[in-house]
Amino acid sequence: MICDEDTRPEAICDVLIVEDDPAQAEEIACYFSRAGLTVQILHSGSEALHCVAEMRPRVALLDYNLPDLDGVTVAERIRRLSPETAMLMMSGRIDGLPEPTLRKVGLYSFVNKPVQPSQLLSSVRRMVRTAARTGLPATAPPKWLGLSFG
């Protein structure tokens, strides 16, 4: 989905999912929507960067392996465009990222795929509540960094 005048997503959403696998993105989005969260899906890093400042998501759930950019690059740029957005990264092709890398770009945690939506939901809900209450991204104690499911 490209963010232009005719297809602009809602101005604010709870969760932006940036995932190149449409089936996986839809599964997570449906699960989060049923839980009462407002969700938008984009399938590339460039789409996310094009839309994020306008969307102002409370949480961005980023795939590490995107077709155009890696997730760390996307996270660094989202941090500049939308500093209040909390971010969580996931991937099925790498075992994780070093804690200093996660902290440097302001990532809440790294999640290994396959991920169970029910497990992911509890972290995302906590992040959404924190962002909604404070207007700041959720920051986690160090024990949350590198957390993985699957």
Rank of each mutant, 00 (worst) to 15 (best):
H43C: 07
D63V: 01
P141H: 06
A23W: 07
P57Y: 01
C3Q: 07
V18W: 05
T130C: 05
A11G: 09
N65M: 11
R125C: 05
L69Q: 07
M55V: 03
V59Y: 00
P67T: 14
A132W: 00
S46R: 05
R133T: 08
C30S: 15
Y31F: 10
V18G: 06
P9E: 11
D95F: 09
I94C: 14
P114K: 05
A75H: 05
E27M: 10
M87R: 02
S118D: 15
E99P: 05
K143L: 06
I17L: 03
T134W: 03
V72D: 06
E84C: 14
K113H: 12
E10I: 05
V115E: 07
G146Y: 09
V52A: 02
S118R: 07
R93E: 11
N65A: 10
C51A: 07
D20I: 03
C3G: 12
P142T: 09
R80S: 11
I41Y: 01
S148G: 06
I78G: 02
R93P: 12
D4S: 12
Y31A: 04
A29H: 02
K113G: 09
M1P: 03
L81C: 09
E54N: 14
V52Q: 02
T73G: 08
Q40I: 01
T73M: 09
D4P: 07
V111R: 15
A11H: 10
I41T: 08
E5L: 13
D20N: 12
S33A: 14
I94P: 13
M127N: 00
V72E: 12
R126V: 02
L16P: 01
M55G: 05
P9M: 11
P137F: 00
L37H: 12
S33H: 08
R34Q: 14
Q116N: 14
L88G: 02
L147G: 13
R79D: 08
C3V: 13
S122L: 10
K104A: 14
H43V: 09
L88K: 00
D6N: 15
T85Q: 01
Q119A: 15
Q24Y: 03
T38N: 15
R34K: 15
L120S: 04
P22K: 04
Q24D: 12
E84P: 05
R103E: 14
H43D: 08
L61I: 03
D63M: 07
P141I: 12
R56Y: 06
D95A: 13
Y108G: 00
G92V: 09
E84S: 15
V72W: 14
L62K: 00
P67S: 13
V15L: 03
L61C: 08
D14L: 00
I28T: 08
E26G: 04
